[in-house]
Structure formats: structure tokens, C-alpha cells
Design a binder for these strands. Structure first.
Length: 267
DNA sequence: ATGTCGTGGACGCCACGA
């Protein structure tokens, strides 16, 4: 099974790129973030033409998450119990059963600046996500939580830790909140490095992409039992190139589910 | 380091968010 996650920074603008990429990479499941589309606006027929079912959760303009799957899409859940808002709950999490894996697509609040109300919201949102994930039946066997976490888990997940002192995405509080989620029995899959860099996001400004000034903030947290079956994990940097890219690249993970517990006979 | 994009409202620019 190939699972991918991609913050597309407006799906309305990115549909042509996403369609093209689906044909090239052929993921079984694609987790999308920052669709910025209402459910009514979601271009599901264009994805259906490529064999993908879609489940979308969005209010338009900001945020918005979705799941595309060509291996089944059932038990769709929008948001989660205990999810905090700002002050209203935002469209930041959607889950579904895809094949035999419970897949979440999440867009963690940015946090803006350390100590701001948005920062407190980010931490409480991550804590609530952990609580919700802990109640998932298959947390240690068949679960993948994918998306834009807006947290770089380790110092080498940013181009220069010294440049981030005092910034969001790297604080002990944010990293601890992600670590607590991982500690439920998940693995933070580290994609293959490119020239030593594992980055998934590069600011549009200042030519950061071409200078290699990126961050690894798009994560695939996967059940430890599934992690042992991962055959490859990489950042598709081509998705960040060319005209009108998102500022995030797609992250791709391949899992060999043959013979896995709960796997369907067809694989 | 703050150079670029995206959104939408009142416009051919500005404020805001990332």
C-alpha cells in the first residue's frame, strides 16, 4: 500500500498538479491539507475519473482536509471528540478506513508566535488529538496519522536550529506534544534524505527551496506494527518544483501489507 | 532573512495568514 500526504495550499489552485501527480505516483491513499474548499466545492468528480473516492472536510477559505483513496473509503470521521477550536472548531482532521488501515489527514494549527493564543491552541489541539488517537481501536496495529503537523520533531529537521531559537515549530512544548502522540505506539517515519536533508516544506520567500532552507513538518506517524513493513519512505521533491507549486512537497510511504494481520485476501 | 504565495473584500490594491 502506498500512502501519501500533501499540504497543497489551496486545492482549487493545485488541482491540475494533484491530478498529474496522482497519475505518476499512483498512491493508494492521499491525505490532503489546506484544501481551502468547502465540501460542496471539492472536485470529487475529477478524482473519481482517476479511480479515487474522496472524503472532504472544509469550510472554504482557510484550512480544510481531505482523503483520496482507491482501496476503499469507509467509516469517515470529520474532526474528533474533544477537539478544541479558536473559538469555533476548524476543519483540521478527517479520518477513514482505507483498505485495512485507519488513516487520518490532519492540519495542526500553525501557532503563529510562541506564547500567543494561537500557540496555546496548537498545543491543546495536539493534546486532544493524542487523546482521540489513544481511543482508536488499532492504535498499535493499523493506524496512520498523516499531515502537516507544523512541528519539526528534531533539530536536524530544520536547516539551522540556531535560526529557529524563539520560533514556533521547534519548541520543547510542541515537540513534547508530538512525542506524546508518537509514544502511543507509533513511529515517526523519517523519509529518505536528499543531500542529507529530510525537508518537506520550504518557505516561498527568498528562494529557500533552491537554497535547501527547509523544514520537515509533514509527518507520517504509523503504527509500530505497520512500520516494520515499510519498504520505502521519501519526499517527492518534484512536487515542490516548477510553476505554481505548493510550499510543501508530498511525502510518500510504501508499506508491504501482504500477510499482515487484518489484511484483506486481495492484499 | 521576511525577497512569495494564497484568500477575499472592495477593487485594479490592500489586509491578512502561512
Amino acid at each position: 500500500m502506498r500512502i501519501a500526504t500533501w499540504n497543497v495550499n489551496s486545492l482549487a489552485v493545485r488541482v491540475p498538479r494533484v491530478l498529474k501527480w496522482l497519475e505518476i505516483a499512483r498512491p493508494d491513499v492521499l491525505c490532503l491539507q489546506e484544501t481551502k474548499l468547502s465540501d460542496e466545492q471539492f472536485p470529487r468528480t475529477q478524482f473519481a475519473a482517476l479511480g479515487y473516492d474522496a472524503a472532504a472536510y472544509g469550510a472554504g477559505q482557510w484550512n480544510g482536509v481531505a482523503l483520496l483513496s482507491r482501496v476503499g473509503l469507509s467509516d469517515v470521521q470529520r474532526g474528533f471528540a474533544g477537539e478544541p477550536g479558536f473559538p469555533e472548531v476548524e476543519a483540521r482532521a478527517i479520518a477513514a478506513r482505507c483498505g485495512d488501515v485507519r488513516v487520518w489527514s490532519v492540519y495542526v494549527p500553525n501557532g503563529r508566535t510562541v506564547g500567543s493564543p494561537h500557540f496555546a491552541y496548537k498545543l491543546s489541539w495536539l493534546n486532544a488529538l493524542r487523546e482521540a488517537a489513544a481511543s482508536e481501536a488499532h492504535v498499535t496495529s493499523q493506524l496512520a496519522i498523516c499531515g502537516d503537523f507544523n512541528v519539526a520533531p528534531n533539530d536536524d529537521d530544520v536547516w539551522d536550529p540556531a535560526a529557529f531559537v524563539g520560533s514556533t515549530h521547534v519548541t520543547t512544548e510542541e515537540r513534547s506534544a508530538v512525542a506524546a502522540l508518537v509514544d502511543l505506539g507509533l513511529v515517526d517515519l523519517r523519509p529518505r534524505a536528499f543531500k542529507g536533508e529530510p525537508f518537506t516544506y520550504w518557505d516561498y520567500r527568498a528562494g529557500n527551496f533552491h537554497k535547501g532552507l527547509g523544514m520537515r513538518i509533514d509527518l507520517v506517524l504509523i503504527s509500530s506494527a505497520l512500520a516494520t513493513r515499510v519498504t520505502d519512505a521519501y519526499v517527492d521533491r518534484d512536487t515542490r518544483k516548477g510553476k505554481l507549486p505548493s510550499d510543501h512537497a508530498a511525502v510518500v510511504v510504501d508499506i508491504d501489507l501482504s500477510g499482515a494481520d487484518g489484511a484483506s485476501p486481495a492484499g
